[in-house]
Every structure is written in C-alpha cells, then in structure tokens.
Simulated scan of single mutants.
Amino acid sequence: MTLNLAQANAVVQCTLSRASELDIRISVAVCDAGGRLLAFQRMDGGHWAAGCGAQGKAVAAAAFARPSGLLAERSGLPIMQGIAAAEGGHMFYSKGAVPIFVDGVLVGACGVGGGTGEQDEECASAGAAALG
C-alpha cells in the first residue's frame, strides 16, 4: 500500500484548513513512507524557511513511524545523527509532523512548519486524519 497524490492533496487541504482556523500561516509537506515528497504548499504570508522545517519533520516522522517531536529527546545520540546524515541532512527531529497510517500500514507522513511546535503538530494531525 502506498500514498497516492490524491490522498496527499487531501491531507494538505485538511492541514491548511486547520491552520486557517488557528489563524497561522504554515507550510505543509506530505511524503511517502520512504520520506520522498509527494505534495507541498506554503500559505500566503508563510515564511520560506518553514517549508524546510515541514519537509524535514515529515521525513523524520516517516522514517521512524512516530511523531517527529518524540524524536527530539534522542536527537543528539550518535545513531540519530548518523541516520540524519545518511539521509542527506534533511531530517528534523522536532515537533510538527505525524506519520500517516492506512489500515495499520505506514504510507507516509505530514509535516508542518510555521507555527509553534504544538500548532504545527495539531495541523499535521488534522491532515493525517483526512485518511483515517
């Protein structure tokens, strides 16, 4: 099972809707289970660097099949640094991304940047729920 473009776009739309409700300007990235980008959008007024964070958090959530914020505590460990380096340095271990499961199978992740870590994760969770 894999995440397709229509599903990724549905995740993006639900994520953006939640950000609008929170009155924040975000970037959202949806990747497949291998951490490769499928869909990305930055809201008008969103900071360009938030896009880097959104993608990096999504890659981490997909790689470990858990919310990216749960990885922050271990981010300084050599194994975590080694994995991030081997992946190309695009993996961010900070709050704001959640894995996406369909029928119990990891199919991708949704990462958000632009709000607080809590707001980012709330938006990412709303997006992931589009498929649940």
Rank of each mutant, 00 (worst) to 15 (best):
A129W: 06
A54W: 03
Y93W: 11
V105S: 09
L77S: 12
A109C: 01
A50S: 15
E87Q: 11
C123E: 14
P78A: 10
I83H: 12
A86K: 11
M80G: 05
L106I: 05
K95P: 02
Y93R: 10
C123Y: 12
A58G: 08
G46M: 00
A65E: 15
Y93M: 07
G114W: 03
A124C: 04
V107N: 05
D103T: 10
A109H: 00
D120I: 09
Q81C: 08
G45N: 14
Q81E: 13
E122C: 05
A109N: 00
Q55I: 15
A129N: 15
A50Q: 05
S75I: 02
F40D: 02
E73I: 04
F40K: 01
E118R: 05
R66G: 11
A129P: 05
R74A: 11
A124W: 09
A61V: 00
G114K: 01
L71H: 00
K57H: 00
G108Q: 02
H90V: 09
L38E: 13
M91E: 14
G115Y: 06
F92R: 14
A61K: 01
F64W: 15
A39P: 03
I83W: 10
G111D: 08
A85H: 09
A62Q: 03
R42N: 14
T116F: 04
G69L: 04
G104A: 05
A109V: 01
A126H: 07
V102A: 06
F40S: 02
L70Y: 14
G117N: 01
A60V: 11
E73H: 13
L37I: 11
Q119N: 13
S75C: 03
G111H: 14
F92S: 11
H90T: 15
C110H: 04
G88S: 09
E121T: 12
D103G: 12
S94W: 02
L70R: 10
V59C: 08
G89F: 11
I79S: 11
A65S: 08
L38Q: 10
G89C: 12
A60R: 11
M43P: 13
A50L: 00
G53I: 10
K57E: 00
A109K: 00
G88F: 06
A58V: 03
D103V: 04
A124Y: 00
F64S: 08
E122S: 12
F101L: 06
E73W: 02
G69N: 06
E87P: 00
V107C: 07
F92T: 15
G115M: 05
H90C: 10
D44H: 10
L106H: 01
A60S: 14
W48F: 09
S75W: 04
K57Y: 01
V59F: 12
A84M: 00
G104L: 03
I100R: 03
Q81Y: 07
A58D: 07
A85P: 02
L38T: 12
Q55M: 14
G111T: 12
P78Q: 10
V105N: 09
F101W: 06
L70S: 14
A86F: 07
L70F: 15
D120W: 07
G88D: 14
I83Q: 08
E121P: 11
E87L: 05
T116M: 01
A109Q: 02
G117E: 02
P99G: 07
E87V: 06
F40G: 02
